[in-house]
Design a protein around this nucleic acid. Sequence first.
DNA 1: TATTGTTATACTCTATAACTATA
DNA 2: TATAGTTATAGAGTATAACAATA
Lengths: 148, 148
Amino acid sequence: MPAESDVIQFEKMIMHLSWAIQKQLAQELIEFHLTVPQYVALRAIQHEENGCTMTRLAQASYQVAATMTGIIDRLVDQGLVERVRDASDRRTQRVILTAAGKNLLSQVEIRNLARLNGFLQEMTPTDIEQMLGWMQRYLEVMVEEQVE
Amino acid sequence: MPAESDVIQFEKMIMHLSWAIQKQLAQELIEFHLTVPQYVALRAIQHEENGCTMTRLAQASYQVAATMTGIIDRLVDQGLVERVRDASDRRTQRVILTAAGKNLLSQVEIRNLARLNGFLQEMTPTDIEQMLGWMQRYLEVMVEEQVE
DNA sequence: TATTGTTATACTCTATAACTATA
DNA sequence: TATAGTTATAGAGTATAACAATA
């Protein structure tokens, strides 16, 4: 059983850090003319092979479908994604990345990885494995179990 | 030097986790009629002895002063904080928690700590110390150095 | 009837620029 | 002049409810 003071400090750190990371990400995305929710959506689309349906996109982004509509509208306006009607089920929209969208995502990724190296170079491979495992576990216990 | 694939996986995990934590926090705060920025502000005020100035509050929340005005307005409307003019410098506002504000914060804290215990009980005290150290270091290297 | 997605609406968050009051 | 804070404005994100099209 963990010490009470450690739990309190842990809670404080998680709150501060997750907020700070999001605010700083927002800052960095400005030069790419992206907001954080837009970036989250782009990455969700990127991880799907044949385009991502709006329902899937909403789930992956922890958003309501109506919210996604607005976010995708703005990405379409910027020419970063396109909506394609599914042939087999004409209710479904498949959102796909354009060439410009893929290009922009890889630029942001390069930037992210370069910055992250500054932190990870202090760590041993074992440290990194351990952190990855803990973050994965945190996600399972603290987030995914809650979203029932 | 860390493996390339670990860096990529780490970046992916940090992005996903910090976003997921914030979205889930937002979800939990609904029943307390709070938004995440409001909660962040309340906690910043809590950590100051004699009330928190708007400028300090903006810094602590990584926000612009004008944004804080609106957030504090809504907290005042809810009766959770009050604005008090500083006697020595009448330009300065000191924002303080009301009894209701303190009470609400402690309710949220109880909830947070209870949930966190589910995760931390799997960990040894050494694990927790190590995670705290890494999170602290991440904050220093990846966030605070950037906010020059 | 159920599902997919959008539209309408109302409110919060956000930054920029212009402003007021005080130092 | 400089600083602390607010107001005005415009746009993005957010959820709820009502809706259209398709299954």
